[in-house]
């Protein structure tokens, strides 16, 4: 049985569990998402742009019980994540949520009557960062801070996760600011993903604060973080680099032009903060590489 079924099946309603158990190994490996919507058929989405559906339609209580089980009956401890519309569960799988938001003074303070779950199956792909690794060191073997760019769904997180593992295996001390628990999926202090034995994870903490804490406390060779986007993130990256620590990060953008159009991140480019940029296309493949000035180095 594949890993996701080991992690997830016991939390899912009996009908979904039964159908998942009936899947062949190949079918199970192709499942990338399980979608549950109140009143609609449960859908298994596969990586071959297809989907198969169950006859069973869960009601809202079943969707909510599934969420409660996925959260280990500890929604109170996951409230910040839930307010952001997701929870990361055992095995590193990410569950996206839709429901009715409670807003106070413009801030989401709760998500109630959850009616849709999108369980995204996390699969570490060993070797996903093989193409990236040479770009992370210069000719003399010194680390080069690098920003990975791609539109959503192209495998940034997978590549970043494998890069963490490979850096760690090369003897580098890697500290991860894992705000959404996506990179390392820490549960009870233990990363659920293969991220190497020299990796320390600051989990669930806002990136900018996490990077400052890691810088002060953990003496890292590398700080790795996912999805830079806020001005505070950019400032924390600059602080780390001024301290001589290499940063490996990712951001949503389909190219350097799109990156420059984001004022929070343009400052990083102008300051020459990163020694290189890597643009990914589908399935984590490298489409282009750029130097610190944004000049193309290599076209795939």
């Amino acid at each position: 049985m594949s890993d996701w079924r080991d992690d997830l099946l016991r939390y899912l309603p009996a009908s979904v569990r039964r159908r998942a158990q009936e899947l062949s190994e190949a079918q199970a490996q192709s499942v990338v998402e399980i979608r549950m919507r109140a009143g609609q058929r449960v859908e298994f989405v596969t990586d071959r742009s297809g989907a198969f559906e169950l006859d069973w339609r869960p009601g809202a209580p079943e969707v909510q019980s599934t969420l409660a089980a996925l959260c280990d009956h500890s929604a109170y401890a996951r409230q910040e994540e839930i307010c952001q519309g997701f929870v990361t569960v055992r095995g590193g799988h990410r569950v996206g949520l839709c429901g009715r938001a409670s807003v106070q003074e413009g801030r989401i303070v709760g998500l109630h009557t959850v009616g849709s779950l999108c369980i995204r199956i996390a699969r570490p792909i060993l070797g996903a960062a093989d193409g990236l690794m040479p770009a992370l060191f210069d000719a003399s073997g010194r680390p080069r801070s690098t920003l990975i760019l791609s539109p959503p769904g192209c495998g940034k997180t997978t590549v970043l996760r494998d890069a963490i593992r490979q850096l760690s295996q090369r003897g580098q001390h890697v500290c991860v600011a894992d705000e959404r628990s996506e990179l390392c999926a820490v549960i009870d202090g233990v990363p659920q993903m293969p991220v190497g034995s020299r990796t320390d994870v600051m989990d669930g903490c806002p990136k900018a604060q996490a990077m400052q804490m890691l810088l002060r406390a953990m003496n890292p060779d590398w700080i790795v973080t996912d999805e830079l986007g806020r001005a505070a993130d950019a400032q924390a990256v600059l602080d780390a680099m001024r301290c001589g620590v290499a940063v490996l990060a990712s951001a949503h953008a389909d190219g350097l032009t799109a990156l420059r159009s984001r004022p929070e991140l343009r400052g990083l480019m102008d300051a020459g903060a990163f020694s290189g940029y890597v643009l990914l296309q589908r399935r984590g493949r490298i489409a282009s590489r750029y130097d610190a000035r944004g000049e193309a180095l290599h076209e795939a």
Binding site: D72, S74, Y76, A77
Partner: peptide, 11 residues
């Protein structure tokens, strides 16, 4: 444990 330490229920 729940409200001050946000400890998950099983732990």
């Amino acid at each position: 444990a729940m409200l001050l330490a946000s400890m998950p229920l099983p732990a």
